Amino acid sequence: MTSPEITGNPPGSFAWSVLHERHPKLIAQVRDGLPYPPATGRALDELADEITGEIQPHAGWEKYAGRSWDDVPFLWAESCFYRKLLDAVGYFAPGPWQGVDPFEPVKSAELRGPELAADLAAFATRTDDAAVESALLTASLWGNRADLGFRLSSGQADGAGALLVDESPLLWSLLDGGPVVVVADNAARELVPDLLLADRLLTTGRAGTVVLHAKPYPYYVSDALLPDVVAALRRLTESPVADAGHRLARAMRDGRLDVRAHPFSCAPWSYHRMPDDLAADFASATVTIMKGDLNYRRLVGDRRWPPTTPFAEVTAYFPGRVAALRTMKCDVAVGIPADVVDRLDASGERWRSNGAHAVIHVR
């Protein structure tokens, strides 16, 4: 079973808007975020010019060289753009800017922002066990709306949205004290509730260990790296829920919370192509929790699926039980009941990509 891969065509589509509107804004944001030298400014100018035309050859990224950015698989085009952006700012090259995250300024601002402070203050008032777990899952799900790249091209405000599919009871039933894998998405305001959820799983015994997969290097603006995990833990220890931050730090020291960063996390492919060692990691878990929109696209395949396509069918290849906590911010959609699809299609809203809807799928 398959469907066509999503590309940047036709004009006006969500993928087209990312390539033609979000990416130029992102280049400008990166340029203004850190005091880069003139050579970096010139490299960013060259990238801004390139994304208006054909893909230029790049080491390791030759597959679609010479073609329009709009005509190649969208997931590949986005990934290639971010790799070229990192090369433009000297992230991988020897020198003083090597390893400097170009997205750190916006991540840090969000981590110290009033919205997260309010989130933490509100969570500190929760005392009932059921309410705590519901709030954590909700925060981990909707925290994905804080995605910094999404904010560049969306007018959506924060606030409650519509949960189109909720299979969270099945997710909770699977958590029987075994190992749990959480594949993180964004840093800062989304990562903090992910960590609090991990703390809850560990302290209640729902999970014996939690493996948190971060990214090995900056990717898709706000994706979480190990330094972002450390920064989030530090933020927690300075908050009204400081005890959770200290527990998580101890859990990292004793191995109950293990942070990993597999290179495939930044590959321009779906998880259908995952290497054997990563598949074994997922297979060893009671359940793997995939966070966010990008991981969802990689899990089900970045394709034009009919939205009623069963989630279980498109994830049947995955090695073990898997859950997806996803705010909908692109055109990929599966597992939506037909009556819900009909209602949303009739509404005229861009429900697949406006960030106002979410799903919790479990297989």
Rank of each mutant, 00 (worst) to 15 (best):
N354E: 14
W351G: 04
Y296P: 01
A249G: 12
E313H: 12
T237M: 14
D258G: 02
G245K: 07
V259T: 11
L294Y: 05
S239G: 10
R352S: 06
F282D: 05
R343H: 12
T308K: 00
A312K: 05
G245A: 08
D258Q: 13
P337K: 11
M274L: 13
A316N: 05
R250H: 12
D339M: 08
V334I: 11
M252I: 08
P268W: 01
P227K: 07
A312Y: 05
T308H: 03
L257H: 00
P240E: 10
A285P: 05
A316R: 15
R273H: 15
E349T: 12
R250S: 11
S239Y: 04
R298L: 06
P307W: 01
R304K: 11
V340L: 05
P319C: 03
R273Y: 13
R303H: 14
P240I: 10
A324K: 00
D223W: 05
L278P: 06
P310W: 04
M290N: 13
S353P: 00
K291F: 03
R235C: 09
A249K: 11
A242M: 00
H246L: 12
R256E: 07
P240M: 10
W269A: 14
R234E: 15
P263H: 05
L226R: 13
D243R: 14
R234A: 14
A333P: 03
M290P: 00
M290Y: 01
L278T: 02
P319G: 00
R298W: 01
Y317Q: 08
L233P: 01
R343T: 13
L325S: 02
V259I: 15
A249Q: 15
M252E: 13
T286H: 01
T309P: 03
R250Q: 12
A283E: 10
L226D: 14
A316V: 07
R250K: 13
S347R: 10
A333V: 07
A285I: 06
R273G: 11
R234P: 04
A346P: 07
D243C: 03
A232T: 09
L225N: 02
T237I: 08
R297K: 15
R303L: 00
I336K: 00
L278F: 13
L257P: 03
